[in-house]
Design a protein around this nucleic acid. Sequence first.
DNA 1: CTGCTGACAAAGT
DNA 2: TACTTTGCCAGCA
Length: 114
Amino acid sequence: MTKLTPMERIWFIVNLIPHGSVLPYGIVADLAGLPGRARYVSRALKLAPNNMLLPWHRVINSQGKISFAKETELFRTQQELLRLEGVLVNAGKISLSQYQWKPDLATLVMTLPF
DNA sequence: CTGCTGACAAAGT
DNA sequence: TACTTTGCCAGCA
């Protein structure tokens, strides 16, 4: 049985987010088995190796907004990546009801290696 | 051990 | 809707 570190579990979940959809930090934490640790998710994304090709741009905050300050380069990058996937972004805000990934939890849980 | 920081979240105002 | 406050918790100095 493969033992994944908390950070690896977060990366695993982020990798599952489908093209054109998003997921809040807090939900990623929940699915990774780390309830209440949304801030740890942001840390994990920051520390993820560049060669991982992680779809980090699909992770946004619970308000449906991009968590970077609007004048930053990272903000523009994330906004652009999302738009390239067909996601509507208005002033850094995204409609969660329209784009949030809603996986079948029963199926997902059986797929997880942890 | 204490204090600070942060790609957060929820509740108030 | 937009700020602000409070709670949160893993790293790090």
